[in-house]
């Protein structure tokens, strides 16, 4: 999983590099277009295209039947029953390509979340860093801060929540590695004070399939570490177009679907 995350992470870093300094929406449109193409190709390869075409024709025929026999209540009910049945069949035909496409889609969304889902930290604006230790751990936790990041308040220890929290302030834009000493071990956590489109990781978690699937932006903590989570509180980002702001994922779905429908003719795909 780590290897796959590294590979995908590098790929998306490279893919989005040209759009790093542009408004986030620009890169998202390009990524959405590429995903649309991939989705169309995938759909064509994994779906039963003749069956999809046939069932869509049947649904259209049913609608036409309602229009033609709108004074015959029995015919309308029969047509509606047929439309419902054909719709279920249509959904069934889409299940197979959906299964094939779900895995890559989840991996792509997970990668994009860390490029588009969070605001970059602002210079001179405080941010909370929290280290959570495994239950029962009494390891001492200290920070080693790089130049460019300062401690803004004393460490807050929380008896009911093993670990500690700090208030950090980036003094200059950049990407930093925060050193965290937990007992005898030394861990790191990236901190990105940069408003451009770049990879940001709010969490570094203990190893595990689900943790790595959902938080692929940073390597997991060592398996034997006393720390089970390191969190840095990036603000969630909303992407605005003409003053209308939404979560990036909604924009991504809208763009991907719209572009896929727009391009389906070019690829000879029936959706």
């Amino acid at each position: 999983m780590s290897l796959l995350n590294n590979l995908l992470g590098g790929t998306f870093d490279l893919l989005l590099l040209p759009f790093r300094s542009l408004p986030p929406m620009v890169g998202l449109v390009v990524v959405s277009a590429l995903c649309s193409v991939g989705m169309l190709l995938g759909y064509r390869a994994t779906s039963n295209q003749p069956a999809v075409e046939a069932v869509k024709r049947k649904i259209a025929a049913g609608l036409f039947e309602i229009r033609l026999y709108n004074d015959d209540i029995v015919a309308i009910f029969r047509a509606q029953g047929a439309i419902l049945r054909d719709n279920l069949r249509y959904l069934g035909l889409n299940l197979v390509p959906m299964v094939f496409m779900m895995a890559p889609f989840v991996l792509i969304v997970a990668q994009l979340q860390f490029h588009y889902g969070y605001e970059g930290l602002e210079v001179d604006t405080p941010v909370l860093l929290q280290v959570t230790l495994a239950e029962g751990s009494t390891a001492d936790v200290e920070l080693d801060l790089p130049d460019g990041v300062r401690l803004d308040a004393p460490r807050v220890a929380m008896p009911t929540l093993p670990g500690a929290a700090w208030r950090l302030v980036p003094e200059a834009a950049g990407s930093y590695e925060i050193g965290i000493r937990v007992g005898d071990e030394t861990l790191t956590k990236t901190l990105v004070a940069d408003s451009r489109v770049t990879r940001r990781s709010p969490n570094r978690l203990a190893p595990g399939f689900l943790n790595q699937l959902i938080y692929p932006a940073e390597a997991p903590l060592p398996a034997d570490s006393a720390a089970i989570a390191i969190e840095l509180h990036y603000q969630e980002r909303e992407l605005s177009v003409l003053g209308f702001g939404m979560h990036w994922l909604i924009w991504f779905f809208i763009l991907t679907m719209a572009l896929a429908f727009a391009m389906k003719g070019w690829f000879g795909v029936t959706i």
């Binding site: 405080p126 909370l128 929290q130 308040a153 004393p154 460490r155 807050v156 220890a157 929380m158 009911t160 929540l161 929290a165 700090w166 208030r167 509180h233 969630e236």
Partner: peptide, 22 residues
């Protein structure tokens, strides 16, 4: 609120917001 009297500070959790105040 998680209070650390020794540090003369506390950590607050309010919905999705978390912050430290001295």
């Amino acid at each position: 609120v998680y209070v650390d009297a020794e540090a003369n500070a506390a950590k607050f959790e309010v919905g999705a917001h978390e912050f430290i105040l001295q």
